[in-house]
């Protein structure tokens, strides 16, 4: 698609409350490309937590509230693979046969995950201003499979010539977050994040970056609990930090 004049930034509830710096960095990365970034004040949550728990009516009510604040025909950029996937793939399903189906489909069609937008639409060019560093990338399952944009974070990082990306075992395996899964199946989720953090530690990376704050909360929280682990950071913050 052509480069738009303006976009909506749909920050997600997790970013709004827990990782606002990641959201801000994402907005700044887009703004410095000359695109007007609009933050809809009434945005809250895509509805995914309820949707994945089987509470579809509740999910629909919350999603409907978002439709109203994403009304203009401009791209919706989401700094999260899973929330972007919810909007893009599950809103049409959630609103099937509903009076808002057409609106939901329209929003879905112009929704982008942040790294997807930076690469595919803005074609950003980055020059690395940071010190040499070694990192590992954790791509969220929804970015990888539902959105199919796993290579975008890789190609963005590849533009940074002083950043070395280290290989990890079982890269495509889920970190065990899964939203309410982490609560409903806490022990399994714990076993999964322990495996994931072990694989990431084994790379020797000083920092783990991801395009999803759910995974970061899970992996970063586990590193913190275990003590002495790599730092975790959202890709938007990482890119902004390396290039300014």
């Amino acid at each position: 698609m052509d480069r738009p004049d303006s976009i909506y930034f749909f920050a997600t509830c997790l970013v709004d409350l827990l990782y606002p710096r990641a959201g801000l960095a994402g907005m700044q990365l887009i703004r410095r490309e000359g695109v007007d970034v609009v933050f809809p004040d009434d945005q809250t949550c895509c509805g995914q937590p309820a949707f994945n728990s089987g509470y579809r009516d509740e999910a629909r009510r919350v999603a409907r509230a978002q439709l109203a604040c994403l009304a203009r025909d401009i791209p919706v950029v989401v700094p999260s693979g899973s929330c972007a996937g919810m909007i893009k793939h599950h809103w049409p399903e959630l609103f099937a046969g509903d009076r808002d189906e057409a609106r939901a489909r329209a929003v879905a069609a112009r929704t982008f995950e942040l790294t997807e937008f930076l690469v595919d639409v803005l074609d950003v060019r980055l020059s690395d201003l940071g010190e040499p560093t070694r990192i590992a990338i954790h791509t969220s399952c929804s970015a990888r499979r539902e959105m199919g944009v796993a290579d975008r974070i890789e190609s963005l990082v590849a533009q940074l010539d002083k950043v070395e990306v280290l290989d990890q075992a079982r890269k495509a395996e889920c970190c065990g977050f899964g939203g309410t899964f982490a609560v409903k199946q806490g022990a399994v989720s714990g076993a999964m994040v322990n495996d994931k953090t072990a694989a990431l530690r084994a790379t020797g990376a000083g920092r783990v970056i991801s395009q999803d704050c759910g995974c970061l909360m899970n992996i970063g929280g586990a590193f913190d609990k275990q003590g002495d682990g790599p730092a975790t950071q959202h890709i938007a913050e990482f890119l902004l930090e390396r290039t300014s």
Binding site: L18, A182, V183, G186, A187, S189, G190, V193, N194, M217, N218, G221, A222, D224, K225
Partner: peptide, 10 residues
């Protein structure tokens, strides 16, 4: 609950 058995609290 289960969350903080394996991770620190957000």
């Amino acid at each position: 609950g289960a969350w903080t058995r394996y991770r620190s609290a957000p």
